[in-house]
């Protein structure tokens, strides 16, 4: 995987706390054996009930940086949620906080999850709304986001940040390397060795 150090994208404002994964991708779209086509169903039920939903707003159609509230991605562990956002063009999310399973899933897909204070997020939303064509730059090295000439601090979990910066966010290769150590470790765990040890 190639390292992710900067994400340059237009913004999408999505205010609100506790936006759960059922809202991001309603369960009926989980009746599938691949993740193909999930992008078009992101927020489908919210959009049906809100004509001004940002995912239906032409101004934000090319957006890739989502700015949202606290506890984003709570609820179900479905990776279908970050998959659908990613397939809808989202490459980074700035929230007040994230549900942990969701954030972990994003990292595995190379989608950056950063947190920012309420003040920073409302400024970002204001600037995005003022000029939806403005390109925002999320800098993972500097831990900043810059848009329309303004720069603000963001934070990221160390593990996720390192994984993206080093391009090691697909953990599978790393985990596979240790196969002999894994086998050995298993022999020391009482229930895996039949309580004989």
């Amino acid at each position: 995987m190639s390292p992710v150090s900067q994400i340059v994208a237009r913004g999408i404002p999505l205010p609100g706390d506790d936006i759960d994964t059922d809202r991001i991708i309603p369960a009926r779209f989980l009746r599938c054996v691949t993740f193909d086509g999930l992008g078009e169903h992101a927020f489908e039920d919210d959009r049906a009930q809100d004509a001004s939903h940002p995912f239906d707003d032409a101004k934000y159609a090319d957006g890739g940086l989502l700015v949202t509230g606290n506890n984003f991605g709570c609820g179900s562990s479905r990776e279908h949620a970050p998959q659908s956002l990613m397939r809808a063009g989202v490459r980074a999310i700035i929230a007040g906080s994230f549900a942990e399973i969701f954030a972990g899933n994003c990292t595995n897909l190379g989608v950056a999850c950063a947190t920012a204070t309420p003040e920073v997020r409302s400024e970002l939303i204001r600037l995005i709304q003022a000029d939806p064509t403005a390109e925002a730059t999320l800098d993972l090295e500097a831990l900043t986001v810059t848009i329309s000439g303004e720069t603000y601090p963001v934070a990221m979990a160390d593990g996720a940040r390192d994984a993206l910066l080093t391009g090691q966010y697909d953990f599978l290769a790393q985990l596979l390397e240790a196969a002999p150590e894994v086998a050995e470790a298993g022999q020391k765990v009482p229930y895996l060795s039949g309580f004989k040890a």
Binding site: S77, R78, E79, H80, P82, I101, G104, N105, N108, L109, D170, F171, L172, L175, L176, A178, A179, V182, G186
Partner: peptide, 14 residues
């Protein structure tokens, strides 16, 4: 866990 992690656990037991 998410599906990518399901693949990790299937393939490596970790």
């Amino acid at each position: 866990i998410g599906t990518s992690q399901v693949a990790h656990v299937l393939a490596t037991g970790t």
